[in-house]
């Protein structure tokens, strides 16, 4: 146990948690926009896989990381459009549409991988870490927080950006209105469907980029089903957050920290059964909610909007 409690180890764990949280942040902030506008998207996992593949493929072919992110965003947008058409225009049950979208995305990404890359695991040169001047030189803290790649920094910037958009702009007001009371919003001249399309597609773009972080900003390779349930966890984190951006950050960091901690404990030879250790982040997320209340659900969440005819 002693070797766990030295600053190097502790900040090492924190540094790893900061990286591990990255895909959750992109995907969960995206989902947060969806849900605030009254749609929930269980298709995140499928969108992420499509994002992961398209980013990887484009980077593999062109070597340009910017194009990779762009490809993930575009593919995310297309997947988002499918979701929006089905859940907003066709007013389908959102949970099931999402599961369908996940089946589709996970399947199609594997199929494309088999067809275009012959199913061979390849690697690319991904985003490199950038040490931020001055801040990056602070002992321990610099390494833990200020020596990551650009995609990690952007992920954390999303939190204040999401906060500002949702709480300080007219657009944010409209989004929240559409999620809380679509009838009233409609009466005030806000196009419910337009806002929902915007949020579902925007959220899907972020989910696509979340997938890209796996294949070009962290592990730098592609393998089938590599997101391995991250998309579902990201959706769960939005509920954890009570629809507040900063609590998405809290949830993602908590979850990732416990994961990094248990891995470190295994490496240090602290004797806990590995499977029980793996359970910890999931258990802790549930236990936390017993003590921290999570309410404020958008009132019209999961309810398709039907304009009354009279």
């Amino acid at each position: 146990m002693d070797n766990l409690f030295n600053p190097e180890t502790i900040f090492g764990i924190i540094g790893m948690a900061v990286t591990l949280a990255m895909p959750y942040l992109y995907a969960a902030i995206g989902e947060l926009f969806d849900q605030t506008a009254g749609c929930y998207n269980l298709g995140t996992e499928g969108i992420m896989m499509m994002g992961a593949f398209s980013a990887f493929y484009v980077v593999y072919e062109t070597g340009n990381l910017g194009f990779g992110v762009l490809a993930a965003a575009i593919v995310g947008l297309l997947m988002g459009l499918i979701m929006a058409v089905i859940s907003v225009t066709f007013k389908a049950e959102q949970g099931i549409s999402g599961i369908g979208l996940t089946m589709f995305g996970v399947g199609l990404s594997s199929l494309l991988f088999k067809t275009l890359l012959n199913g061979t695991v390849l690697s690319v040169k991904g985003f490199k870490s950038i040490r931020i001047p001055i801040l990056g030189d602070i002992p321990y803290i610099g390494d833990a927080f200020f020596n990551h790649n650009i995609m990690v920094y952007v992920a954390y910037l999303l939190i204040p950006i999401a906060s500002i958009i949702l709480y300080k702009t007219t657009l944010g007001l409209k989004i929240r209105a559409v999620g809380q009371n679509p009838q009233a919003a409609d009466t005030l001249g806000v196009s419910v469907n337009k806002i929902r399309y915007l949020c579902v597609c925007g959220g899907a773009i972020l989910a696509g980029i979340a997938g890209a972080t796996f294949s070009i900003a962290n592990i730098n390779m592609f393998q089938e089903k590599m997101t391995n349930g991250t998309g579902y966890i990201a959706v769960a984190l939005v509920y954890f957050s009570g629809w507040k951006p900063w609590r998405v950050l809290l949830g993602a960091l908590l979850f990732s920290f416990v994961n990094a901690l248990q891995l470190r404990m295994q490496v240090l030879g602290i004797n806990i059964p590995s499977d029980i250790a793996m359970m910890m982040p999931y258990l802790l997320t549930i236990v936390t909610l017993i003590f921290v209340k999570s309410r404020d659900k958008p009132a019209a969440l999961a309810v398709p909007y039907e304009r009354s005819e009279n």
Binding site: L20, N218, I219, K225, M226, L263
Partner: peptide, 16 residues
């Protein structure tokens, strides 16, 4: 030192 991720397919945790 040995780690187990309790999964055959979790690439991301394996890399962590």
């Amino acid at each position: 030192s040995v780690t187990y991720t309790s999964s055959f397919s979790d690439v991301s945790l394996m890399s962590a």
